[in-house]
Write a protein that binds this DNA or RNA. Structure first.
Length: 828
DNA sequence: AGCACGCCGACT
DNA sequence: GTCGGCGTGCTC
């Protein structure tokens, strides 16, 4: 190895690497490569570097140069962590594109892209100095506290000290203690990824010969009967499996580990440790066959045709039209051509149900990647994609970051789902759009599938940028559910409504129950009542943080803020006037559940909302109960609109559709349509005819009308038409500046100032800051300024650099104090 | 992201 | 006076 290195011409050259650090910093940093690592460094490998005073970080090599930096002395990199790159150069390009497109730093993309176990950062550890001779009686209070704590727990972190002292700034104290030789301060990095090890037993090949084996057995039986048992058990197990694990053998034979150890010492057994995957699934059947319906076959042909000309096809298929079967066929084709496939699903849709279904066809070729996986599991998926062990990855939005190198097909199912967009930490990316870009890099084809496509995708399809394929009938000849709209006002007038349930809905529920079928009721609000009001003085309890009324939750007997999570005890007496006449206004899922139980006492009713699914496994338990028919009626919020697919749910009741018809933003109609269509789509899946009852005060509403007619095109066209004269843009790119501040007045000034600056460059493209209205999340008020860019030759690169400049310039003004500006990009 | 440095109000 | 909060700037 050493000789090899000496032969390399690079041996005596001084190399430098430019690395990406997983931090919100715009620049790359240059480190010097120690000579002995000259042949080890490579683009895409991870290195450990010291950055700043003491911290160690994992960085990724972006570039190797021989040019020494002029203005400073580069530090040496400390360690190269990988034998071969874990990040491909294609990925590095992708990271840079993403950072540019979504106005953030490459480091932030890296932080989002790498599984946590691949990006270790050092932790500062504080220990007592064993050689330190100090007089404890001379210590300050704080120093004494720290020394005391270290006596009990020898290693503490900085955050431990922060908690211990109850103050935010602890470094000066620690530093002075370090100077006085009382404590040690060190930086520790530990590899967080640990392969899972398992011990396997092998028989010494000597005993493969029958005579030898017989001799051994006789010998053992006489002197060590337990060992003979173990040998017998081994022989039995090895007949069916090539590798016998220690655990299996112990279980089969009933002997202890000590017996196996003795056999290993006698060199009868050879025990070896192997890394095993946490991801192995052995129950699957490959290539189960299914027939496509004529409609599906036509659609498949159409998609193939589109792919000749176009890279992206929007598959618009009504619920239960059998989109998944088409995906499976397309995946098979891609695999046949030796390509990799990325199959994106929204997080909530990644249920074991879906995963099992696909694993049935693709067996262990398929990898699954989502946030419920542990760190170690994610690293294993990452490595298996790198090694081409996985040809198909089924995953949530973050799987666009996996190290593909020969992608042939990308499927984005439920393309309209807003959960593809990451909101809070940068990069604020949309996985659907990122995936389309990624596919472009590999000349891969993209399928966007949805029953209710987003307007931007539908726009792209109708204007010819994407191919458009439609599936208008349900699979298996089942017709779409019958939708009945019931006027609540009318029922009130006729006095036939009971509580929140119209006579129509009640009849349908009763029919379903008598047929042993199930019902889902949709109410888009959790809790019991959203407003509590004093009838004497009109006092309403409000959140101390958010200034919104608190929702009464009967089950917990608390008043909750649905914005920030603040809660307080329920009140029986008005704190303002002392009156006991308190009225509950409005209603939520809890009240629907309660009232219905009174009306239909012998039905089994369950509730599915944030409150009932918070506990671990609660969501899955509810699904199981529904599947196994321990629930007759499920009352739920938006949560029931997605992913529920049960054959016996034949009736869907929308308690009050009006709450879905008035979203406060400019995509209101699109969202209303999506919610109504999705909820309705739960009725009569898997073969049974379903019925949907929509209760509303607005039976003539345009969106309801189009849900009934299942006519997306109409809604879309009227929407487009209206937006021509609308101050908010239709489907061009929007850059959004979210401006946050704790003080609403200051926020207003800041937003105004920024808008004026932006208008100097972009004129009337700048919208706001009047839209949206000031929102408030976790103590911060938020305002947005939008910039719309139509396809009129504006260089978005230039636009972004101007925006960056304006933000930087703004931050030098005194006005910017306490203000957080977050740029975001939306793809319309 | 940390961490240091420097400024400023509130306390022993 | 100085301690601790907070804003600002730098890290190869």
């Amino acid at each position: 190895m050493l000789e090899f290195a000496e032969n390399q011409s690079t041996d005596r050259v001084t190399l430098f690497v430019n690395v990406i650090l997983p931090l919100a910093i715009s620049r790359l940093y240059t480190y010097r490569v120690p000579f002995e690592l000259n042949n080890v460094v490579a683009v895409g490998k991870r290195v450990v570097v010291q950055f700043g005073k003491s911290k160690l970080y994992t960085a990724v090599i972006d570039e190797i140069t021989t040019i020494a930096p002029e203005k400073y002395e580069a530090k040496y990199l400390m360690e190269v962590l990988d034998d071969r790159p874990v990040v491909t150069s294609q990925q590095l390009d992708f990271w840079k594109w993403l950072a540019d497109y979504y106005l953030c730093n490459t480091g932030e993309v890296m932080a989002a892209a790498l599984p946590a176990a691949l990006k270790l950062a050092s932790e500062t550890r504080i220990m007592l100095n064993p050689d330190g001779n100090f007089d404890r009686s001379l210590l300050h209070d704080k120093e004494y506290l720290i020394v005391d704590a270290l006596d009990i727990q020898p290693i503490l972190s900085v955050s431990d000290i922060v908690k211990l002292l109850g103050q935010k700034i602890v470094m000066p104290v620690l530093k002075s203690m370090f100077d006085k030789n009382i404590i040690h301060i060190s930086e520790e990095v530990s590899e967080r990824y640990k392969p899972r090890k398992r011990s396997y037993i092998k028989l010494n090949p000597l005993y493969n010969e029958a005579d030898m084996r017989r001799e051994l057995f006789v010998e053992l039986e006489r002197r060590a009967p337990k060992q003979a048992d173990a040998l017998l058990a081994y022989l039995k197990l090895s007949r069916n499996q090539s590798l016998v694990s220690k655990n299996d053998l112990m279980e089969e034979s009933g002997v202890s580990a000590a017996v196996l150890k003795a056999l290993s010492e006698k060199e009868v057994f050879i025990i070896e440790e192997r890394n095993v995957s946490r991801l192995y699934y052995d129950e699957f059947e490959m290539g189960a066959n299914f027939e496509l319906s004529p409609a599906q076959s036509n659609a498949l042909d159409e998609i193939r045709d589109h792919f000749i000309q176009k890279d992206v096809v929007l598959l618009h298929g009504v619920t239960s039209s059998g989109k998944t079967e088409l995906y499976i066929r397309l995946v098979e084709e891609a695999l046949h051509n030796g390509k990799q496939v990325l199959y994106l699903l929204p997080e909530i849709a990644l249920t074991t149900h879906v995963i099992e279904r696909l694993r049935k066809y693709f067996g262990n070729d398929i990898g699954v990647y989502h946030s419920r996986f542990s760190d170690n599991e994610r690293v294993e998926v990452w490595q298996k994609v790198l090694n081409h062990e996985y040809k198909v990855v089924l995953g949530a939005r973050s799987s666009v970051f996996l190290p593909f190198d020969d992608l042939g097909l990308v499927i984005v199912d439920e393309e309209h789902e807003t959960s593809y967009k990451q909101f809070d930490p940068a990069p604020r990316y949309n996985a659907r759009d990122a995936a389309i870009y990624l596919a472009g890099k590999y000349q891969a084809k993209v399928i966007l599938g949805s029953a209710t496509p987003s307007f931007e995708s539908y726009f792209n399809a109708r204007t010819g940028k994407y191919g458009l394929t439609e599936l208008t009938e349900r699979f298996g000849g089942v017709s779409l559910p019958e939708i009945e709209v019931v006027s609540i006002a009318e029922e009130i007038k006729r006095k036939v409504i009971q509580s929140h349930f119209t006579s129509v809905l009640m009849t349908d529920i009763q029919t379903a129950l008598s047929n042993k079928e199930q019902v889902i009721l949709f109410q888009n609000r959790r809790g019991y009542a959203p407003v509590l009001i004093c009838r004497v003085c009109a006092f309403t309890p409000k959140c101390i943080n958010c200034d919104v009324s608190l929702t009464y939750h009967k089950s917990s007997s608390h008043l909750h803020c649905h914005y920030c999570g603040y809660k307080e005890d329920n009140i029986n007496v008005c704190p303002a006037c002392g009156s006991t006449h308190l009225e509950y206004k409005g209603f939520g899922t809890e009240k629907i559940e309660d009232d219905l139980q009174v009306l239909i006492p012998d039905s089994r009713i369950a509730r599915m909302d944030l409150d009932t699914t918070r506990a671990r496994n609660a969501y899955q338990n509810l699904l199981n109960d529904l599947e196994e028919k321990r629930i007759d009626i499920l009352v739920g919020t938006q949560m029931v609109a997605k992913g529920l697919d049960f054959a016996d749910v034949t009736v869907i009741g929308i308690i009050n559709a009006d709450s879905l018809l008035k979203y406060p933003d400019y995509r209101a109609n699109e969202r209303s349509y999506q919610m109504l269509a999705q909820v309705s789509g739960r009725a009569g899946r898997r073969g049974k005819q379903g019925k949907v009852v929509i209760q509303t005060y607005n039976p003539q509403h345009r969106v309801i009308d189009q849900v009934i007619r299942n006519d997306y095109k109409d809604l879309y066209l009227t929407e487009i038409d209206e937006r021509k004269n609308f101050k908010y843009p239709p489907f061009y790119r929007i850059i959004n500046l979210d401006i946050k501040h704790k003080d609403a007045d200051k926020l207003y000034q800041q937003a105004e100032y920024l808008a004026i600056e932006l208008r100097k460059h972009f004129g009337d493209r700048v919208i706001g800051p009047e839209y949206p209205l000031v929102g408030r999340i976790r103590n911060f008020y938020i305002k947005s300024i939008m910039l719309k860019f139509e396809k009129d030759g504006v260089s978005i690169v230039k636009v972004k650099s101007v925006i960056r400049d304006i933000i930087v310039q703004f931050q030098t003004t005194p006005l910017s104090k306490g203000c957080i500006v977050q740029p975001d990009v939306d793809p319309y």
